[in-house]
Simulated assay, not measured.
Amino acid sequence: MSLQGKTAVITGSNSGIGLGIARELARAGANVVLNSFTGRPQDHALADTIASEFGVRASYIKADMSIGRECRDLIEAAAACDILVNNAGIQHVAPIDTFPPETWDAIIAINLNSVFHTTAAALPGMRAAGWGRVINIASAHGLTASPFKSAYVAAKHGVVGMTKAVALETAQEPITCNAVCPGYVLTPLVEAQIPDTMAEYDMDRETVIREVMLARQPSRQFATVEQLGGTVAFLCSPAAEQITGTTLSVDGGWTAM
């Protein structure tokens, strides 16, 4: 499979799942645009590293995905957007009656509203180019729920619903829209939580991963960022031309239960 000549914009892609997706798309030949709200020298250096490693064009654009205008400006600044990967997201855990309202607003803005703004901005260019892929990184929590994650669950269910709506609106065009629903993925952020969880439960690393962190993931294994990237790359391939408006779970069987 080759994505040579295509440009992919991946939101929230200076680490973790987003960076893993950017690398796999670059491996397939796509030019990539990285994004975060930080704008640090190391963010630009990540793009330079990808360009050097895979022989593609890579750039970094700072944009705050909690602000609708900046979401749209990101797509405009990218100049081309054949593949849009809506990955940016944040999380907060609290009972709904004590959930901070400002945190609710931030989660809905970044996890859900940004998907609307970037997609609305990207579709005209995809139509003009005669090809496009919109891939939304939802979650197992877009298909099921957990307590104390009301904003995240609501946002990710919304992403799945929006995915279906966009797919229907573009069904007779060479544009597809799908959602990838990961379970627990081994990212630097998750890795950093393991020592504290070990101390909290007085367990060794392997036990705390299997019995605490992955208790709801039947495989008892983390998904990897490379697997997520490979799934996204597949959705951009000719084999996936008739896959639209659906969810692909990468969750070790979580949503099968």
Rank of each mutant, 00 (worst) to 15 (best):
Ile67Glu: 15
Ser52Thr: 06
Gly39Leu: 01
Glu70Gly: 14
Pro100Cys: 00
Ala94Thr: 07
Asn31Arg: 03
Ala80Val: 15
Ala78Pro: 01
Glu76Gln: 15
Met162Phe: 12
Gln227Ala: 11
Ala122Phe: 00
Met65Ile: 05
Thr49Pro: 12
Met162Ile: 04
Val85Cys: 12
Val166Thr: 02
Asp196Ala: 08
Asn136Gln: 01
Val212Arg: 08
Leu186Tyr: 10
Ala120Lys: 11
Ala77Arg: 12
Ala154Asn: 12
Tyr184Gln: 13
Gly68Phe: 11
Gly142His: 11
Lys62Ser: 11
Leu3Lys: 01
Asp82Arg: 04
Ala26Trp: 06
Thr98Val: 09
Thr255Arg: 15
Ser66Thr: 14
Val93Lys: 13
Tyr201Met: 10
Val232Cys: 01
Ile61Trp: 00
Met162Glu: 06
Val250Ser: 03
Ala223Asn: 05
Ile107Phe: 07
Cys181Thr: 10
Ala145Gln: 14
Trp104Val: 13
Arg69Met: 15
Gly18Arg: 02
Ser237Met: 11
Thr170Leu: 10
Phe222Thr: 06
Cys181Arg: 03
Ser237Cys: 13
Arg23Glu: 06
Asp105Gln: 15
Gln227Cys: 01
Arg220Ser: 03
Ala121His: 05
Ile107Pro: 04
Ile209Ala: 00
Cys181Pro: 09
Ser150Gly: 14
Ala58Val: 13
Asp64Asn: 03
Ala192Asn: 13
Thr247Trp: 13
Arg220Cys: 05
Pro41Glu: 07
Tyr60His: 04
His92Pro: 02
Val225Ser: 03
Leu235Asp: 04
Arg40Trp: 11
Pro124Ser: 11
Ala22Pro: 06
Phe54Met: 03
Thr170Glu: 08
Ser15Thr: 12
Ala167Thr: 08
Cys236Lys: 06
Ile108Thr: 14
Gly89Leu: 01
Pro147Gln: 12
Glu206His: 11
Ala28Thr: 04
Ile61Thr: 05
Asn31Trp: 07
Lys164Arg: 10
Trp254Ala: 01
Ala47Cys: 02
Ile209Pro: 04
Asn178Glu: 06
Trp131His: 07
Pro218Thr: 02
Gly68Cys: 07
Glu206Asp: 12
Val93Met: 14
Met162Trp: 08
Asn87His: 07
Thr187Ile: 10
Gly5Lys: 09
Asn111Ile: 03
Ala165Asn: 01
Leu84Thr: 00
Met1Arg: 12
